[in-house]
Simulated assay, not measured.
Amino acid sequence: LSGGIGLTSGSKHMMTVVLLGKISNNNATGNTILKKQHFESHASSVPVTKECNMAEETVYEIRIRVIDTPDFFNEDLKNQEEQIKKCKELAQPGPDVYLLVMQLGHFTEGEREVLPHLKREFGEDVALKTVILFTGKEKLKHKTLTDYINGSDKELQELIKTCHSRCYAFNEKGNHQVKKLLELISDMQENSAIASHHSHKKKHKENKECSIL
C-alpha cells in the first residue's frame, strides 16, 4: 500500500475489525475484506449470523482479524449478553475499528437506536472507532455518497456526524475498495493517536466529507 497504510513487509501488526449491523450481508462484507469465503453468506430475510465468529487473513501485508457478530440488539437473539461478552473476548486487546454495516436506501428503526446501545455495551468512546459502511454502492448510480446522505433521513445524518463523518460505500467486488478502506482505517488510527496528545488538533481531521470507495 504505497504511501497509504505505512506498514512494512513482514509487519506483525494485527488489525481487528468488528462487523456490526442488522442485515445479513455483514457476512458478505467480511468475505470481501478477507478475500475469502470465511463467513456463510446468502440472501435471507432472517439474520444469517447467530453467534460471533472470527476469521483471519493477511491482506496487503496486514494481518486482519474480522469478527462477524449477530444483531446484538435483536429481540430474537436469546443469548445477547453471552455474545457481547464473546465479541469483547475475541477482539482483545480491543478492536481497531467497528464497521457499522448498513444497506443503502434502508434506515431501519433498530439502526436509529444502534449507537446508544453500542455506547452502553462497548463504552462512550465507541463512536471514535466507528466507520459506517454502506453496502449496495451500485444503487447510487450517478450520485455520490455525499449526495445520498444530504438527501437522507435527518437521524441518519446525525448518526454519521456522531461518527465524525466516517462513512464509505462498498459493493461486493473490487479489490481497490478494500485497499482504500484499510488505508482509511489506518488514517483514523493515526488521527486518533495525534488527537489524544493534541486534542486541539482533532477537528481538522474529523470534519471530512463522506467519501465513496
Rank of each mutant, 00 (worst) to 15 (best):
95 P>A: 07
120 R>M: 13
75 E>A: 08
67 I>H: 01
94 G>K: 00
102 M>Q: 08
107 F>D: 09
104 L>Q: 08
110 G>S: 03
99 L>F: 07
48 V>S: 06
87 C>D: 00
63 R>Y: 09
67 I>N: 04
49 T>I: 05
105 G>N: 12
48 V>M: 01
90 L>W: 03
61 E>Y: 09
89 E>C: 08
43 A>W: 11
63 R>N: 14
59 V>E: 04
57 E>S: 14
90 L>N: 08
77 L>V: 11
75 E>R: 15
115 L>M: 14
107 F>E: 10
102 M>N: 11
43 A>G: 09
51 E>D: 14
60 Y>A: 07
72 F>D: 01
107 F>S: 08
117 H>Q: 12
106 H>F: 15
114 V>A: 07
64 I>F: 01
65 R>V: 12
72 F>W: 02
81 E>R: 14
106 H>A: 15
91 A>H: 00
93 P>K: 09
101 V>R: 05
118 L>E: 06
69 T>M: 11
82 E>T: 13
88 K>F: 08
73 F>P: 01
81 E>S: 12
51 E>Q: 12
58 T>Q: 12
99 L>Y: 03
55 A>Q: 01
111 E>I: 01
64 I>C: 07
85 K>R: 15
58 T>I: 12
58 T>M: 15
78 K>R: 09
96 D>S: 10
56 E>K: 13
66 V>N: 03
78 K>H: 13
94 G>D: 06
72 F>H: 01
90 L>S: 05
116 P>M: 07
99 L>M: 06
56 E>T: 10
74 N>D: 15
115 L>R: 03
53 N>V: 07
88 K>T: 10
52 C>Q: 11
48 V>W: 04
113 E>T: 08
110 G>Y: 09
65 R>T: 13
100 L>V: 05
